[in-house]
Design a protein around this nucleic acid. Structure first.
Length: 379
DNA sequence: AAACCTGTCAACCGCCTGGCT
DNA sequence: GAGCCAGGCGGTTGACAGGTT
């Protein structure tokens, strides 16, 4: 009974990915671009399910992924988008540049849910919490008990409440808490130099992830290398294709590290060996594919690189160009809706009357069969 | 020091959707 | 239109790390 597995159970490896596997996957995707996941295990020799490959890529290896602590802004965005969209993590992720749906989901489940529950306890019972907490399913089940008119009105109220809260959240970012500046759009935050970002936010590009993994792998390599010399040979050949980048420390005393693409892994390791210093470095990837540190501060986050990655990493551009196109598309889909959302919110603050009309339109749209999510997509 | 508890997050599972034949 | 398939999504699990007793 049930659906057959997406791939043969036998001979499929499960569990955490090794750096070797990561490299093989990245190299293959660099060559062929993402997609055709089903072919990847057979073409690369990876003993992984195609889904596993896709997940590993989208959640971890894909360039431009931001990892580490969520900013206050992101947190509020998640809370309010969750109120708007329910547990549609992929949709929510589309509004949060460089965050994966899995990351957001995990963050919600581990941090925000708890936080909201605590707030709920403090504030006592709050009707709005039904919307904050409820998934679209739960709210729809309660909605099914009320008349359509009530449902629409309640939906409008929900949207209005969420909008208001989201507007508040966004405006928070423009308060002195944010150090700067001229009401930067939230998505611009990721484009700010690290010097204006909160020091607690740690960024990591996929290259950095891989580099870190490679470093760990090297530490443990005596075991793994001896057991898999063929893999090493394979990796060595991959080495020439894998353009994660190599490092030439142009001015170590200033903490500046420039990374030149395509020089192989050895240099990459030396790059990471600089982690041993007490200097925490922010690394950016410029449009020419060069890495460079953005900032050198004296906190003691030894071994942690704060990386600002920019979306179009030429290093990872596949020969067929799909990847760059995808990155571009990602940025478009990530930024444009966000900008529109903000614009909508800001307009909202200035034009309450128009907003009512808009909401009525939304409500009517809903009444005409649009889902809440579809309506949200209009934003 | 050891056992236990708790939090985090990468990865898996199974269902759903949309495209193709 | 039906069936198949690949990819996408959300819920859940389990390994691991760190904290507490």
């Amino acid at each position: 009974m049930g659906r057959p597995p997406c791939c043969e159970k036998t001979g499929v490896k499960k569990g955490p990915w090794t750096p070797e596997e990561d490299i093989i996957l990245v190299s293959y995707i660099q060559e062929h671009g993402p997609g055709n996941w089903r072919n990847i295990p057979t073409n690369t020799g990876l003993l992984r399910c195609s889904k596993s490959c896709r997940l590993r890529w989208t959640n971890y290896l894909r360039p431009g992924i931001k990892r580490g602590n969520f900013t206050e802004h992101e947190e509020k965005m998640i809370i309010h988008l969750q109120a708007l969209l329910g547990n549609r993590w992929a949709a929510i992720a589309s509004y949060l540049p460089q965050r994966t749906d899995n990351d957001i989901k995990n963050y919600w489940n581990t941090h925000l849910k708890k936080k909201l529950n605590n707030n709920k306890k403090v504030e006592g019972h709050d009707d709005n919490q039904d919307h904050q907490e409820g998934t679209s399913a739960s709210s729809s089940s309660s909605q099914s008990k009320i008349s359509k008119g009530q449902w629409e009105r309640r939906l409008q109220t929900d949207i209005h409440t969420a909008k208001q809260a989201l507007c508040d959240a966004l405006s928070l970012d423009t308060t002195p808490n944010n150090n700067n500046n001229n009401n930067p759009p939230p998505h611009d935050q990721d484009q700010q130099p690290s010097s204006v970002q909160t020091s607690t936010t740690t960024y990591a590009s996929s290259a950095e992830n891989i580099a870190k993994l490679l470093q760990n792998w090297m530490k443990n390599s005596p075991k793994s290398t001896s057991s898999s010399s063929s893999k090493i040979t394979q990796m060595s050949s991959l080495n020439n294709n894998l353009s994660i980048g190599a490092v030439s420390s142009s001015s170590p005393s200033e903490g500046t590290v420039n990374v030149t693409p395509g020089q192989g892994l050895d240099s990459l390791f030396s790059f990471n060996s600089s982690n041993n210093s007490d200097v925490s470095q922010s690394v950016s990837v410029d449009e020419g594919g060069n890495f460079s540190t953005l900032e050198n501060n004296n906190n003691n986050n030894a071994g942690i690189f704060q990386v600002e990655s920019k979306p179009n990493l030429p290093d990872f551009k596949p020969k067929n160009g799909n990847f760059q196109e995808e990155s571009k598309q990602n940025m478009e889909t990530q930024q444009v809706p966000l900008t529109m959302l903000e614009k909508w919110l800001l307009d909202d603050a200035n034009a309450q009357a128009e907003q009512e009309d808009q909401l009525m339109g939304i409500g009517m749209g809903m009444g005409m069969g649009m889902t809440l999510a579809e309506t949200a997509d209009l934003f």
